[in-house]
Amino acid sequence: MQRSGNAGPAVNSRPVIVNDRWCKGCDICVVFCPKKVLERPEGGKAQVVRGEDCTRCGICEMMCPDFAITLVPAGDKMESRFGRLGGNADA
């Protein structure tokens, strides 16, 4: 697990890690990410392209069918695993 710095709201260029051995390129994370942090090149695997926009909402990790995305906890202020609630409809 990558530990980001602890000074203030850590701006982390890689807030989520994609395991490209497990990712099957289904695009769910790319489409569901509210901040368009992820993209996937044709025939390739998901990639973090706008890490700075990530709000750690955890939707990508939650919606990945292949357990290929891991949310990196932010600095020493251990937010809950799913960051702020939001994103898809909470029934």
Partner: peptide, 29 residues
């Protein structure tokens, strides 16, 4: 404190068998 989800997986057996985009991985998550 929540553990990384991979804590519950037999990582050496992954990736799993389900097709690209299959919902079963989400349900299992």
């Amino acid at each position: 404190m929540a553990k990384p989800i991979t804590y519950y997986l037999r990582k050496d057996k992954m990736p799993h068998i389900w097709c690209e985009g299959c919902g079963h991985g989400i349900v299992l998550g």
